[in-house]
Simulated assay, not measured.
Amino acid sequence: MAPVRVAIDFTPGLNQLAGIGRYTRELVRALTENAQFEIILWYGRTSSPLPHSSSPRIHYRQIPFSERWLTRLWYRVRIPFPIDPLIGPVDVVHGTDFLVPPARCARVATVHDVSFLLVPELGHPRLVSFLQAVFPRMLRTVDALIAVSESVRQDLLRLYRLSPDRVYAIPHGVAFPFAPHPPQHARPVIASLGIREPYLIAVGTVEPRKGYPVLLQAVERAATKIPDLQLVIVGATGWLAEPIERALEAAQGRGRVLRLRGISDQTLAALYSASAAFVTASFYEGFNLPLLEALACGAPVIATDIPVHREVAGDAALFVRSGDVDSLAEAIIGLLTEGALASRLQKAASQRASRFSWHKSAEQHSAVYRAVASEHASRRP
């Protein structure tokens, strides 16, 4: 049987360090273990270096336009020029970042969240209006959607009244180096970064959806009981972040907050492992990959009580109401002062994370590719 040729949009894998970029890179890495697939990685013109791949099943194809121009041509101006002539004959084209371009073959798109519909006030207005306009048009022609969680899948079915057999929930995975790091390995890393203990760690872009103002207020209140408490934030500055950044800078000046950007995965895993807790105050998430990474490192978790956090963390987290400073502060104090509670969550964390792997995720993606390729081939005259 000839291998299925899958063309994957690798642009996020080149241009985005976390989130969608990590998903794209890890998916491709796991897919190379499957001999049934030939993988073409296509991307817009970029200055980002290509990763090294020794797999004979990986082929790179650069499109002679930048990502911005591709977006304009395919989605704004809506020029229906198929991607196939630019990358060669394939069986499936997979758009890894919400949208997939026109193609003569089967088309699959990954949907990471529906924040542009559910919490549009927390997103960048231009991106929100773009997705609200373009996404429904794509739905009329795409062969299948991959939702990164059952929560996102249910939202898609409810909001767009899609056929359930066209929407697949495939959760992310987690892999090395995200595993518990022993104290003798983690503490030198902490010391080199000037972090004091006990500390909480929060990971994610600084933007309104992540709830950082609520988290900062809760940490300040918890510090009345735990004076040395520090909040370590790992993440870049995102959209609509100016007032949030001002508050974080003021807290950093008081020594309550430490901001880190651009650290390695190995360093991040060490920080998860030695933290008193990983805390996420997000109002909305499609999956929350840092939450899974923290669980894999054995960190106790405090998370807002939203559907996808329940889906990912299960019984391995303390849940608090979104936007509730008092309940979040109480959870922080309780976790840091009750050794039995912290121990229970640490034990549950690794067990919960073991349910997720990129290998399993890639196998589920593979099943979707085979299904849509077969269905598309059967419709050919």
Rank of each mutant, 00 (worst) to 15 (best):
A373N: 03
E375G: 01
G314K: 15
Y284K: 04
S129L: 07
V257I: 07
A144P: 10
H376A: 15
L271S: 01
M1Y: 00
D143G: 06
Q62Y: 02
P227F: 03
E207K: 10
A18S: 14
R68P: 05
R5A: 02
A353S: 15
W358S: 12
F283D: 09
L73W: 00
G88T: 01
S354V: 08
A103P: 00
Y284G: 06
Y369K: 03
L341F: 02
Y168S: 02
D265A: 08
A299M: 10
A294T: 14
I39Q: 13
S327V: 04
A223D: 13
E220L: 11
Q351E: 13
P208L: 00
S149D: 11
S357P: 07
V325M: 09
E249F: 01
N288F: 00
V312R: 10
R344L: 12
P82L: 06
H172G: 07
L193S: 12
Y199A: 03
L328Q: 08
C297A: 12
R45H: 12
P85K: 00
T304P: 09
A103F: 07
A222D: 15
R78K: 10
A274W: 09
F37K: 15
V119Y: 14
L231G: 14
T24C: 11
A35P: 03
R61C: 10
G339P: 12
D143C: 08
R161V: 03
R104D: 08
Q16C: 11
V108P: 01
V372T: 01
Q184A: 15
R379Y: 10
T205A: 04
V90T: 15
A251Y: 13
V111K: 06
C105I: 09
H181R: 10
